[in-house]
């Protein structure tokens, strides 16, 4: 064999190092993805022994014209908008507040972050008891508005149920996004802020005219990551509907996929919805990548 230079030997080791990841990618990402696409053109049923029949685009036509699917999309849109807007705004405000504190920054961050480490199921469970007709939620709201004895139907009324699931989600992830802002703000050089102060900017002006524009990439990042995560929300909605909450207002796409596949055993239709979810998320991710390329902040 001919002498192969050190570069060639190194290239071989490069292949060795990436092989496990590539194999896992092919087996557990690419293959299931293509398989899902393939399934959408057949009428696959779970547990069925009959060979699946080719149906062309019939599944797509069915899903896109079905009222249930659009209701589910509406539930997803309400949840996503309802969760990501407060998450982005509140975490920005909290992030700004934490960085202005002289003491206890670390402790505040840890406290805010605690809900994020709990399991979603545990979070849903805690709030289920808080939202019980006899529970803390009613007591608190009635105390706030001085309306004793009213039951706000947190888990049965359609709109209240949507508010409840959104509340849980915002509560759980607010700390997570606050940390992103805290890190983002910490990256703004002290000298920039000092310059603003020397030029006579008030605190409000510093925040609005200096910090906010410099934080634009972070804000973009937070809002899209929050949106992507809320699109995938499943646990709270699943637990609540298992416990008897009405399905329709919280029938988010992931829950719909799960129910279509596991309860209705209709694999193909579940795969169509999976694909639509994938496209939505892909568009959002591409927007994020594009924007982070464009908005590289120079201080």
């Amino acid at each position: 064999m001919k002498y192969t230079g050190i570069e060639k030997r190194k290239a071989r080791w490069g292949y060795v190092f990436v092989t496990p990841a590539v194999v896992l990618f092919l087996m557990f990402s690419l293959y299931p993805m293509l398989n899902a696409l393939y399934n959408t053109f057949f009428n696959m049923k779970l547990l069925s022994l009959k060979p699946p029949k080719f149906v062309g685009l019939a599944n797509y036509a069915y899903i896109l014209t079905s009222e249930a699917f659009w209701k589910s999309m509406k539930a997803t849109a309400i949840f996503t908008l309802g969760a990501f807007i407060p998450l982005t705004v509140f975490s920005l405000v909290l992030g700004l507040y934490i960085t202005t504190r002289n003491r206890g920054q670390k402790a505040l961050q840890l406290m805010l972050y605690t809900p994020a480490i709990l399991s979603s199921v545990v979070a849903a469970l805690i709030w289920m008891l808080i939202f019980d007709p006899r529970g803390l939620g009613n007591a608190f709201v009635n105390f706030l508005f001085q309306t004793p004895g009213i039951n706000h139907n947190w888990l049965t009324d359609h709109i209240m149920l949507q508010i409840s699931t959104i509340t849980i989600y915002v509560w759980k992830y607010i700390g997570y996004f606050t940390i992103i802002y805290v890190t983002g703000i910490a990256k703004i050089p002290q000298s920039t802020l000092e310059a603003a102060t020397i030029d006579g900017a008030s605190a409000m002006q510093t925040v609005m005219r200096v910090i906010m524009p410099l934080l634009k990439p972070t804000t973009m990042m937070v809002s899209i990551v929050a949106m992507l995560n809320s699109l995938k929300s499943f646990s709270t909605q699943y637990l609540f509907t298992q416990r008897g909450a009405p399905l329709e207002p919280v029938n988010v796409v992931t829950l719909n996929i799960y129910n279509t596949a596991m309860r209705d055993l209709n694999i193909s239709r579940a795969c169509v919805m999976s694909f639509l979810l994938f496209f939505m998320m892909m568009v959002l991710t591409l927007v994020r990548m594009k924007s982070s390329e464009r908005d590289v902040t120079v201080y």
Binding site: Y15, V18, F25, F28, S29, P32, L231, L277, M281, M282
Partner: peptide, 28 residues
């Protein structure tokens, strides 16, 4: 390491981030 196809591998990894688990769980 420099090797042919390195960028392809990297693109695959980046692409994987766009595929939500929920979209491939049924075939899996």
């Amino acid at each position: 390491y420099k090797f042919r196809g390195r960028n392809l591998v990297f693109l695959m990894i980046m692409g994987r981030m766009m595929i939500p688990f929920e979209a491939i769980m049924i075939p899996m």
